[in-house]
Design a protein around this nucleic acid. Sequence first.
DNA 1: AATGATAACAACCGCAATGGT
DNA 2: GACCATTGCGGTTGTTATCAT
Length: 331
Amino acid sequence: MGRPPCCDKIGVKKGPWTPEEDIILVSYIQEHGPGNWRSVPTHTGLRRCSKSCRLRWTNYLRPGIKRGNFTQHEEKMILHLQALLGNRWAAIASYLPERTDNDIKNYWNTHLKKKLKKMNDSCDSTINNGVDSKELSSPNKNTTSNQSNSSSKGQWERRLQTDINMAKQALCDALSLDKPQSQTNFSITDLGYGPSSSSSSTTTTTTKSTNPYPSGVYASSAENIARLLQNFMKDTPKTSVPSPVAATEMAITTAASSPSTTEGEGEGIDHSLFSFNSMDEAEEKPKVIDHDINGLITQGSLSLFEKWLFDEQSHDMIINNMSLEGQEVLF
DNA sequence: AATGATAACAACCGCAATGGT
DNA sequence: GACCATTGCGGTTGTTATCAT
């Protein structure tokens, strides 16, 4: 008889988050910092389970998240890291500081898996060395059919190696003093509702809108958010209204009514309200923040593994070997 | 224009790990 | 060491947008 899932509680809301919920959550975290997720729903009045709040924060609202198209470099990194680490998305994400594990996982499942399969299919037609094509499509041994074969020894070795590398990475971070640490500011436009959300604005060849909220239904500007928020507040029982919400409402309403709320960089919005310092990052899992990759390589700060990761030219050769041999690459 | 297929991604769920008592 | 609460992670699902017919 295990514990009932937290989300089974009556009155716990599921499904897509609304802008007003986002604002409440962001506002609360700004005040208290991330963590202690258990208390978030009770303190904010959000009818969400703690898990949902944490997920929303880490995958969507957290400052410094890059959304939209993956670059070629990122794509290669993911390919190689997946080959090395398997489906350890959190570990992979630690090498791509601006991407969330969920984002990487999704990208892998929707793009890279197919791409790799295609590549391997074409490989199969030319090279018939008796290797199962399924294995080829997923070079790592933690996943797919090979999973059962992967002995615990192999898994633990791999994990150990990863952890060592992550520790090295953290050390590199700590040593690179002159590097600006993480993204320190966070504005409401980063929520993706503003006109110049860093994510959507950088996507040049978007095939579809990534706005999670259907147009006309959810807020798309500060003004809308304010209006929605006011409606939301009317519907919310007064007893559960936390102070951050009130403060946020006031700030948003003020911002929305200011003269320059129309276009561009979320002008007119009180950015200070949504600004974060890097303390948040310190509490998160270790991340590789803003590497000057070439600099680090020339400084000799990186291990061979990291050099390999960041050296585009060696990628193809090594990954091909890994795929075809189905063997672990040791560094 | 209508409809079905597919792609993309946010969110959920269950399990494992971790920390506190 | 056992138990419990909390957090983190990875697999999977559900929903929406876009494309093809």
